[in-house]
Design a binder for these strands. Sequence first.
DNA 1: GTTAGCACTCGAATACCTAGAGTGCTAACA
DNA 2: TGTTAGCACTCTAGGTATTCGAGTGCTAAC
Lengths: 349, 349
Amino acid sequence: MSLDSRKKQVLDAIVDDYVSTYEPVGSKALIERHNFTVSSATLRNEMAELEKMGLIEKPHTSAGRIPSDKGYREYVNSLMSYDNLTREERDDISRRIDGSVNDITDLIRTATDTLSERTGFVSLYMSPRLHKSFLKQLKMLMIEPGKALVVIVLSAGVVKDKVVRIPNFLTGEQIMKISDSVEQSLTGKPLDEITLVTVASSMKDTDLPDAMMNQIIYEAYTAIKQADSLNIYLEGENKMLQLPDFGELAKARNLLDSLSNDGMVAGYVNELHPEIEKADDSFMIRIGQEITLDGLQDCSFITTTYKIGDDISGNIGVIGPKRMEYSKVISQINFVRKKLNDNIKKLTE
Amino acid sequence: MSLDSRKKQVLDAIVDDYVSTYEPVGSKALIERHNFTVSSATLRNEMAELEKMGLIEKPHTSAGRIPSDKGYREYVNSLMSYDNLTREERDDISRRIDGSVNDITDLIRTATDTLSERTGFVSLYMSPRLHKSFLKQLKMLMIEPGKALVVIVLSAGVVKDKVVRIPNFLTGEQIMKISDSVEQSLTGKPLDEITLVTVASSMKDTDLPDAMMNQIIYEAYTAIKQADSLNIYLEGENKMLQLPDFGELAKARNLLDSLSNDGMVAGYVNELHPEIEKADDSFMIRIGQEITLDGLQDCSFITTTYKIGDDISGNIGVIGPKRMEYSKVISQINFVRKKLNDNIKKLTE
DNA sequence: GTTAGCACTCGAATACCTAGAGTGCTAACA
DNA sequence: TGTTAGCACTCTAGGTATTCGAGTGCTAAC
């Protein structure tokens, strides 16, 4: 499918108009708002052909046209021109993100919140995939008989902890000994090379009975593995209710229901970025029916990756109505990502 | 205001009918569904008087009556009979809550989720007020130059941690020394007796320059104080969209907007339980206009307290439409609270 | 104090109409 | 061959009129 230059212009104009007005675009309105040198009748002919190609469609016989999913796709792929952010936009984003200086999770969350605020849509981040990060520290602290806290520090600067159950009569000293021994032999190992076996062998010097060791090994192992669990964070769901696109209660319900299933959304975003280890700066864009996640067919997903060092990355992006200003949203995500990466670098080196 | 027995019956019947049908209740419908021994004309007279008293009202001239906020209040205060939960309900709640055995926060969250699932409304918990709990352990772990992790274990079995900044050239050994010294002198102190001064004096034996100490003191102090911060958790906002009460988009928006302001809701719930330290098992109920929190005047708040030991407690409850089955909801909260308290006891002793 | 009867009210539902925006098609034109 | 003016046609949104029925308050009789 290749469009001649005038068809491109027409499609471009229809998308622009429809995005800004949420009204089906007619041939007359098109003439008025854009400086076409042809008559409305000619445009009608062009529009009829664009419709035949499946790029635009009519809500009903005597209405103007709206872009189809395929139309948006064409627009995004080859028509859209990239916005440069204004000075103010850049400053605002910088101010927000640079102001978040605590830890890396805070930073990523702030970046995500910023995205939602600035776009008015839902924003999301996926926690960094940590299986390539390596263990920097592991401490077990006795909390009370039968309970210990495992604290794990990863190379990415991420700190995780988990309360685990331990045999009741273990003393604080014994725990410390085990802790030291595990730490010593696992430090420097990437998470994905840590298995039940490596954990077990890290404890082989301790002089405790096997049954007891098994419990500790298992708990330590799950504490470590949990550090690599995939989390998603969504922000700004309610903002979507302000959009006319979700002005019918049924649609609004549907949207919120779908978004409330964090796990499903996380799984989908994960699928979109299959080789996230080798992530470059590209964007994944999914529009309307392209989204294989029930109930979000009025939306578009735009996601990309942020990086912690060379091996570790996670995703950040926006879920908005498919009727959105793609170039603007993409530019904003892009700049937010840049600021995020910069700040992560500052924080971890 | 005291109602004669028949007026009570009528009000009771109106509330019951309206709650179950969401239709204004007319005199005829009342006769049909309840076995009154008088005619509809008599009921009309009674209803006119109830209206004069402000207990019921008409949406418009020729409609049936619906309870006013004052009517619900009267109903809750003196008419309502308490439901006993069915065997199944009790079993379901027990199963869910007993199944959550990890840590105390998990447990409280599970209880809250259960409430939302079972009522179909929004449920909430407020984190336990910890200022009466005392410090059991405090450890500072060096993560990397300039950064340490402060881990705090409280008497309530709560573990908190925070990454803090420390002077760059402090060694792990120095940190451990400071940590030991702080722990030794603060252990056993209730949180609300720990101040900048007590923290500072706990470190007086260390031989570091003052400027450096100030930073550590401050960081340690904020880490400790942060353990006592008031958090709220809300669950099930979307479920409210299923209710006819919020069937208009404007109302739905309004509701979700109001609920999304966690801080405001937390502040309000906190106000409702002013002397939470001396909490008994009573319920706080706020209906419609009684709620001094913008945008939630179509709702009712029902909250109560859970306990961790004798001195520490938090809140748990439900936000639903004011048109709800109060007795059922209260019974459920009550049973959930009981199970929650039981499990907390098991977990902390 | 209770009740039957009745005129009255008002919202919800339905049908009907109109205005207007937009279309596709045809025939003329460059 | 591509472009355009003209026109009949379509369909929605919005407004008006009408009807239906549930419910009310009031009166007068029991």
